[in-house]
């Protein structure tokens, strides 16, 4: 916002007459006249005599009182300066060049967020819908409320655990407490781990002899069929037996040089009847009247 110069600035200095603009003709001739002081009177007379003979003096002589006055009245003018008034016009013949003053509010250095700086100066374009993290201005939760919610949360967790681990508790009748102990504690921990996304149970043995594994699987299947049978006899409707979902066996990875059809064994291509059928293609039996033939 460029505004016009306050004129007072340029006349203010009184003690150091050097700082007054050198080009300006002396305005002091009139300003010094009203002084009743003998000293200044004399000076004025000298000055006039001097100026009659030589060029005007470049600056006004120091006259304390008068200058104070002028400085004051110019201070008043500073606020709303509308133009050259008659007095200053009479004082100075040449209009000083306008001084451009730029008004800018001194800006407080905002500390720049490092993350924001990084985000803005990165090579990616800044996203339009970037949520600016404002500190929440809403009413802060009171401590009592806070405590309450914490307690609620704790109870919720306890309830959820109780629901999911109650079957362990029913097996363990020794302790009346809700927290599982001993072996059950380990089992409960395992369940929680699985709930949090663990790959499998800790208690599932991965490696064992094949006969061992077969026995386990067979026993499990036996138990299941027995359970179903008993339920059927008792007239209990059970859940639908879920088909064991085997791996979808697609085409097996075959060798690059394997034949497309049949098996190559011992230097001979062996074709079974299915392979032969697939080569021959579907046979149309001419049993009908021949009309449906394509």
């Amino acid at each position: 916002m460029p505004s016009l110069a306050p004129l007072g600035k340029r006349k203010r200095p009184t003690e150091a007459p050097k700082s007054a603009p050198a080009t300006k003709p002396a305005p002091g001739t009139k300003a010094a006249e009203p002084e009743s002081d003998g000293d200044s009177d004399l000076q004025a007379i000298f000055k006039r005599a001097f100026e009659a003979k030589f060029a005007p003096l470049p600056f006004a002589p120091a006259a304390d009182e008068g200058n104070h006055e002028s400085a004051e009245e110019e201070d008043e003018d500073e606020d709303e300066w509308t133009g050259f008034d008659s007095e200053s016009e009479s004082e100075s013949e040449s209009v000083p060049a306008p001084v451009v003053v730029v008004h800018s509010t001194p800006s407080r250095a905002l500390e720049i967020d490092k993350s924001e700086l990084k985000a803005f100066l990165s090579s990616k374009p800044p996203t339009a819908a970037k949520p600016t993290p404002f500190p929440s201005s809403g009413p802060k939760p009171t401590p009592a409320e806070d405590e309450d919610s914490a307690a609620n949360l704790k109870n919720d967790v306890a309830l959820q655990r109780l629901l999911s681990e109650s079957h362990l508790l029913s097996a363990d009748r020794t302790s009346g407490a809700l927290d599982p102990t001993g072996k059950n504690r380990h089992k409960a921990l395992d369940l929680r781990l699985q709930a949090l996304g663990a790959k499998g149970s800790l208690f599932k043995q991965e490696k064992m002899p094949m006969a061992h594994r077969k026995g386990i699987v067979r026993k499990g299947a036996e138990r299941e069929t027995k359970r179903r049978k008993e339920a059927k006899e008792a007239g209990i409707v059970l859940e639908v037996a879920q088909k064991a979902k085997g791996k979808s066996v697609g085409r097996r990875e075959r060798a690059v040089d394997a034949p497309a059809v049949g098996r190559f064994r011992g230097g001979t291509l062996v074709l079974n009847s299915r392979d032969v059928a697939s080569i021959e293609g579907p046979k149309f039996k001419s049993k009908g009247k021949g009309k449906r033939r394509r």
């Binding site: 803005f120 090579s123 374009p125 800044p126």
Partner: peptide, 18 residues
């Protein structure tokens, strides 16, 4: 980067721009 590329976002073009 900061004024023109975001325009593409309005047109549904916003991934992998750098």
């Amino acid at each position: 980067r900061t004024a023109i590329l975001p325009i593409y976002e309005q047109f549904g073009i916003m991934n992998k721009l750098e």
